[in-house]
Design a protein around this nucleic acid. Structure first.
Length: 379
RNA sequence: GUGGGUGUAGCUCAGUUGGUUAGAGCGUCUGGUUGUGGCCCAGAAGGCCGUGGGUUCAAAUCCCAUCACUCACC
């Protein structure tokens, strides 16, 4: 069995479960560090495994297809071997790049035509092609090609787009079922529910994708600029119409408090660039709130970044040193900050899992979301 | 010593024939960042325009002196 639901919270919709892959199990709720180009930026695989204790990381089909390309990935024996990462990998399909690189793309019934952001060369992605690329990558979990709608998005476009994503989902699933893994380990496939902020569209999307019996289901098209309350409302609605016995993945979310809220609404898996991207920009997450590490107030602050954190950065270095590294634009700043933020995220979901199990999740969450969302600098 | 050049924000420099509150880039300071281009965006602080005189209704701008730096030649 791919997913085992172990327990459901009594006071919320939060759940704990286990995803089984040939590269090991993933205990949910889980946060997945983003490693778009076959690397979690500024972090070594050793740190990912030993310090951060990541159970699964992300790769990106669009980016890996453009560079280094499927031919090289196959020659390397797949992405796991290429990057020496022995745990599970999930690959996003490129659907989000259709959205985020919209200036370079053209949607068609069969797929999406886009110009490479690297050299301008033209490419055409179809559901079949995207599955083929993800076979070459060898990810444990692959995502279907979808269209991620922007926010705001009018109803008619959201409906058209969702229906296109549904038609593509059929082709995605067919291509998946008719092809074989290349490297001897099993691969699973997740469908992506779209429908913007419209509940009837979300329901229709969930229903149509549900028929295709994916191994898991994602909620896409959120965290694209809508208010947090609207996101929660749609997540709350959508998890009600998603299969109970399949993992649920909220794509691209989010801030620590967003993740806790979504866990309470029944989501199992998350990914977000925020801990790594913000880390590189000196924006760090702590148990007391957000910190801008370049701020002058830390110039001679020799305390650890977060006294409640057991990560490599907090156990060994001071705020003053971190700030110095950032101001001097030193590479180590990026590494230490990324290790800290990712450890913080992984610790957060691990704690959530423990709290769900012992029945104290709801109270704990209510207190944490307030603390986590504040900016320490302005206290 | 003689002749030339340059002095404007922390740095590098714009600044029209004299004309409102002297600008830019970088840096500094403060926010932002949601299926990643170490990206990008927003806001703020910061000037006795080398110094002293003069001309003018009005001078960063024109004139004189002076100081500093710099180049060339003796």
């Amino acid at each position: 069995m791919f997913f085992k639901l172990e327990q459901t919270d009594t006071k919320s919709k939060a759940r704990v479960g286990v995803v089984e892959t040939d590269h090991g199990k993933i205990e949910t709720p889980i946060f997945m560090p983003v490693g778009t180009q076959g690397t979690v930026k500024a972090v070594t695989q050793k740190a990912l495994e030993e310090d951060i204790k990541a159970q699964i990381i992300l790769g990106n089909t669009y980016h890996l297809y453009l560079r280094p390309g499927t031919e090289l990935l196959e020659k390397a024996g797949g992405l796991h071997k290429f990057m020496n990462w022995k745990k599970p990998i999930l690959t996003d399909s490129g659907g989000f790049q259709v959205y985020s690189l919209a200036k370079l793309r053209k949607m068609k019934e069969d797929g999406v035509e886009f110009s490479s952001h690297l050299d301008g060369s033209k490419h055409f992605f179809t559901p079949e092609k995207v599955i083929g690329i993800q076979r070459s990558i060898g990810s444990d979990i692959m995502m279907v090609l979808d269209e991620c709608t922007p926010y705001p998005c009018d109803y008619d476009y959201a409906k058209k787009s969702m229906e296109l994503t549904s038609r593509w989902a059929i082709l995605n699933r067919k291509a998946f079922l008719e092809t074989e893994p290349l490297y001897g380990h099993k691969q699973a496939q997740f469908g992506i529910i779209q429908g913007s902020v419209y509940k009837d569209l979300r329901m229709q999307s969930a229903f149509e994708l549900g028929k295709l019996e994916f191994e898991g289901y994602a909620i896409g098209g959120l965290a694209v600029g809508e208010p947090a309350d609207k996101m929660y409302e749609i997540v709350d609605f959508t998890t009600n119409v998603m299969p109970v016995d399949k993992p649920r993945y909220l794509m691209g979310v989010g801030r620590p408090e967003n993740i806790l809220e979504a866990i309470s609404l029944g989501v199992d898996m998350f990914d977000c660039v925020m801990p790594t991207r913000n880390a590189r920009n000196a924006c760090l997450f702590t148990s007391n709130g957000v910190v801008s590490m370049k701020n002058a107030m830390y110039k001679d602050d020799f305390a650890p970044l977060d006294e409640n954190c057991d990560c490599y950065c907090c156990k060994n270095f001071s705020r003053a040193y971190l700030r110095h590294l950032f101001v001097a634009n030193e590479i180590l700043a990026l590494e230490l900050a990324s290790i800290h933020n990712l450890t913080f995220y992984l610790n957060l979901v691990t704690e959530a899992r423990r709290r769900i199990k012992d029945g104290t999740f709801a109270e704990w969450k209510a207190e944490r979301v307030i603390t986590l969302s504040r900016n320490i600098n302005s206290l």
